[in-house]
């Protein structure tokens, strides 16, 4: 693998991105309703002015090319619903919040998931295995909107240790990130356990043992790389899920992240906002998967030459 591989991957991205832009643009335009069709009846003249302001009086194809033109300058246009604010401004404000939440959640997921899974694999069919694995089943089954309020109830209200909402101090970060990361921790713990259990029975682990290595040396040097690979390949989808899935958590804890704007804009037919957030999510997901592929290749020498 070299620079050419990376370049090729990035080049393939361009037509795909173009397709996504086109698909989202026309899908949202053809959806019934529009940004100004709200409950309140707007006088016809006002509506006309509004449409002129946002170029909605132009033919659709012309609007499409106008959008492409703006996009090529990284201008996502003005929001239809948040008057006087551009989509770029809103994203610049809300994205760091979502990213911070997502990254902390991912750290929890990896820390808890790999520790629990590793422990379970080290001592299979003991309490070290049964307890985390039963918990992980719970983590996978329970949706965020159950875990979130549950954590709030216990740590926020009963014990009073942590704030129940907001996004100011570091304590504010704990409950939302745990809520968001829990399901991923659960999944990662199972992948880790599975990965290590499979590696344990490989011939090359037997070779390592035959050479006189200690179990710790075997685990950290010979089993870790291969054992962690399933987790690595899961990281791409996990990151994507964490980023886009933050919506529920952001709502529960009243966090000013991007998820809220995404849903809101889709419901309101805030055309530019829908486009902007969708394209952002798409790019993030693509980048995450791309990064993960590279990590995978670094870890597994066998795929390097294919």
């Amino acid at each position: 693998m070299g620079l050419s591989y990376i370049l090729r991957r990035l080049l393939v991205m361009i037509p795909v991105f173009f397709l996504v832009v086109t698909a989202v643009f026309f899908m949202i335009r053809f959806a019934p309703g529009g940004p100004f069709s709200s409950e309140k009846k707007v006088p016809p003249q006002v509506l006309k002015n509004l449409e002129a302001k946002y170029h909605m009086d132009e033919p659709l194809v012309q609007q499409y090319f106008r959008y492409l033109g703006d996009l090529s300058r990284f201008d996502l246009g003005p929001s239809f619903k948040h008057s006087n604010r551009t989509v770029n401004e809103i994203i610049a404000e809300a994205l760091p919040v979502s990213m911070e939440l997502g990254l902390i959640a991912l750290c929890w997921a990896l820390l808890i998931g790999i520790t629990a899974g590793g422990l379970a694999a080290l001592k299979p069919n003991t309490l070290y295995d049964y307890i985390p694995m039963s918990l992980s089943i719970m983590g996978i089954c329970l949706p965020t909107f159950v875990i979130g309020p549950l954590l709030v109830l216990v740590f926020g209200l009963w014990l009073g240790w942590l704030p129940v909402a907001g996004w100011n101090s570091w304590q504010d970060r704990l409950l939302p990130s745990l809520t968001l990361g829990f399901a991923y921790a659960a999944y990662i713990s199972r992948l880790t356990r599975g990965g290590f259990m499979e590696i344990r029975h490989q011939d090359f682990i037997r070779t390592a043992r035959a050479k006189g290595l200690t179990e710790t040396q075997i685990l950290t040097k010979h089993a870790l790389r291969g054992g962690i690979l399933p987790v690595v390949s899961y990281l791409g989808p996990a990151l994507a899920g964490i980023i886009t899935g933050a919506l529920v958590t952001e709502t529960i804890f009243n966090i000013p992240g991007l998820g809220r704007f995404f849903i809101e804009s889709a419901l309101n037919r805030d055309y530019t906002m829908v486009m902007g957030t969708s394209l952002l999510y798409f790019s993030l997901i693509f980048l995450c998967n791309f990064l993960v592929d590279i990590i995978y290749v670094v870890l597994d020498p066998r795929v390097r030459y294919e």
Partner: peptide
């Protein structure tokens, strides 16, 4: 691996691929 060494029957899988 020191006083008693072993050469395994399975050469293809006995080395660590990573």
């Amino acid at each position: 691996g020191h006083k008693i060494s072993i050469i395994f029957q399975e050469p293809m899988t006995s080395l660590n691929p990573y």
